[in-house]
Simulated assay, not measured.
Amino acid sequence: MLFAPDTEESLEFVVALVNTAPAASRSGTDELSTVDDLGTLLSGYTYSGRIDHDHAELEAVRDARTLLQKVWTLNRDDAVEAVNRMLREARALPYLTRHDGSDWHIHATEPTAPLAERIRVEAALALIDVIRTNETSRLRVCDADDCEGIFTDLSRNGSKRFCSVRCGNRVNMIAYRARKAPS
């Protein structure tokens, strides 16, 4: 295991969030265009605290998605600056908590803070672990030419190249057809 369970959970959520963007989504459309879409996304993750279920919240989460997509691709030193800014802007104060069946883990915002702020801060806390362990190379963008999906490579040897089996199969099929095509 590379990271603490709460770090992996947060990174997994960032991947799911960013991969709702049109250039990264399976459908090629914005999969976070309605409040219901946000509810569906959140249903697979444990976000305790305030959730407003309104358009303003949706827009703020979409802004967080854009920010996190940019941070994902930064080099280690630039990521430090972005992470520190996210924590500073939220006036984050880390504390240990356990809830909803999760063991002790870190939060740094109050449960009453806006959802998008909590998303940014939890992502920042996870990125702290990634940066401190010098594993930013595990934060990847899909190698498929037509995909901007992101993923966390948690494989033992760090050799994962695609955001999904679908992208890997598609790229491999294209390469196979190119090899078999008459010259």
Rank of each mutant, 00 (worst) to 15 (best):
L38G: 02
L87T: 08
A123M: 11
A113Y: 01
S33I: 09
A79K: 03
A144I: 08
V165E: 03
A116Y: 06
R166G: 11
R170P: 10
E122C: 13
E122I: 04
R132H: 06
T34A: 14
N75L: 08
D6L: 00
L127K: 07
R118W: 02
C163P: 07
G168A: 07
N169V: 08
D103R: 10
G39D: 15
G158R: 05
S27Y: 05
E57D: 06
P114R: 05
G28I: 09
V35C: 09
R26S: 06
R166S: 08
C167V: 15
E31P: 02
A16S: 11
C163A: 08
D153M: 08
E59H: 05
Y45S: 12
T109K: 08
A92V: 01
S33F: 04
V80L: 07
R120V: 12
G44V: 13
L67R: 14
E81W: 15
N84D: 00
V15I: 15
E8H: 01
V141I: 07
A123N: 02
L2G: 02
L127R: 00
L42M: 12
R166K: 04
V18Q: 09
G149H: 04
R85C: 13
L11G: 04
C142S: 11
K160V: 06
R166P: 12
R179E: 03
A175Y: 09
A113W: 05
N84Y: 10
D145T: 13
S48V: 12
T112P: 06
R91D: 10
L125R: 01
T34S: 12
T40M: 13
N172C: 15
A23Q: 10
I128Y: 00
W72V: 09
T133H: 01
E59V: 00
R118Q: 13
A181Q: 12
T29A: 09
L32K: 07
A24N: 04
I174S: 13
C147S: 11
P94F: 12
A21S: 14
D37C: 12
L41Q: 02
D129R: 02
T73C: 10
A82Q: 07
P182V: 13
R179I: 06
R161W: 04
V61N: 11
F151V: 05
D153K: 01
A24M: 10
L38P: 01
T73Y: 03
R98Q: 15
V121H: 03
T136A: 07
C142L: 14
D129K: 01
G49L: 07
L17V: 10
S155V: 03
V15T: 00
L125G: 00
P111T: 04
T34D: 14
A90P: 12
R91W: 06
T34R: 15
T29Y: 13
A4W: 05
W72I: 08
D6H: 04
A126Y: 00
S164K: 07
S183W: 15
L38I: 14
I119G: 07
E148C: 15
P182H: 03
R120D: 13
G39Y: 14
F151S: 05
D30M: 04
T7E: 03
D100F: 12
T66W: 09
Y176H: 14
P94R: 02
M86R: 06
G39F: 14
V165C: 14
T97I: 04
T66L: 09
S33N: 11
A16P: 04
E117I: 05
A178Y: 12
